[in-house]
């Protein structure tokens, strides 16, 4: 009995260590962002050297320097990112919900084919369409604007449509029938029944799309030309690539600033997150 309890404790310790390995890089980053340039480059592992007061002063100094950097305008990039995120999250959630309704609740000829097409497009790698997409946006005069980053979201995304369709199929059909007897059409059913019942799934779509926008790098890299339009991901890369002169403590502070909102969001919506991530593995 004792040995089994011992092995259990050992096993738990091992698991905690394994999990800690995943968080260690982030803690290391956070710690570096609280050091002075010399301390970060000192070759020693320092945690809050000089006491809490000095550490707090250094934190304030580092983050202030990043936030007010002359060449890399983080406040502006945050604003741009939020604009793109807001517009495309709303568009993505709404349009995916509509299309998924069509695929889940309406019988029509060719539905199977459309659904197969939706699934198949998940395989198309972005590089395949990157160049012609750039040229198409050029024809539209959208290069150098934020439009290419959020307009496509208003036409739905394959994965989100798939996810919502799966969810809708779990909503009992009888509800539709009852609503139809009450004289509701598809729009009514969609608005009064399906949407309210699928809130959790819609939250997953919105959340994941928000993260996607926040993280997207290749899109902004190609479609944005002017520094005033940069998003955070692009700005962070620019901050890093200035001639290799940026000190590590500031680089880590900048990275932490970009990561923090996502982590806060995660803390607040952990359950939705994990459910959403898990549905990604769903297959029929």
């Amino acid at each position: 009995m004792l040995s089994s309890r011992l092995s259990r404790a050992l096993f738990r310790t091992l698991m905690v260590l394994a999990a800690a390995m995943f968080l260690l890089p982030l803690l290391w980053m956070l710690n570096t962002s609280t050091l002075s340039e010399q301390q970060a480059a000192s070759g020693q592992v320092l945690v809050a050297p000089g006491g809490l007061g000095q550490t707090a002063a250094r934190v304030a100094e580092n983050y202030r320097r990043v936030w007010t950097d002359e060449a890399v305008n983080f406040p502006l990039y945050l604003r741009n990112t939020l604009i793109v995120a807001a517009l495309s999250v709303v568009g993505m959630t709404l349009s995916s919900a509509v299309v998924a309704y069509g695929l889940a609740r309406i019988e029509f000829k060719g539905r199977g084919a459309v659904f197969a097409l939706v699934l198949a497009t998940m395989m198309i790698p972005f590089p395949v369409i990157m160049a012609p997409l750039y040229l198409a946006f050029r024809e539209l005069g959208w290069i150098g604007t934020l439009l290419p980053l959020w307009v496509p979201a208003w036409f739905g995304g394959a994965f989100n449509i798939f996810l919502l369709r799966q969810f809708y199929r779990t909503i009992p059909r009888e509800l539709d029938e009852a609503a139809r007897i009450d004289g509701l059409g598809h729009v009514g059913i969609f608005l009064r029944i399906i949407l309210p019942l699928s809130k959790p799934a819609l939250a997953v779509v919105a959340l994941f799309h928000f993260i996607y926008v926040w993280n997207d790098f290749l899109g902004p890299l190609i479609f944005l030309t002017h520094r005033d339009q940069y998003t955070l991901a692009l700005g962070l890369q620019m901050y890093q690539s200035q001639a290799g002169l940026t000190p590590w403590n500031l680089l880590m502070a900048a990275s932490a600033m970009v990561i923090a909102p996502i982590l806060i969001l995660f803390m607040l919506t952990q359950r939705t997150f994990v459910q959403g991530a898990a549905t990604e593995g769903l297959k029929e």
């Binding site: 349009s95 029509f108 369409i129 012609p132 198409a136």
Partner: peptide
Amino acid sequence: GIAGWVWVSPWLIGAAAFLFIPVILS
């Protein structure tokens, strides 16, 4: 039948514009 196509049309239009035509052009 038509209703179904109307509901899925946003994706079809978007995919045509931002996916299929670029893929073919590519």
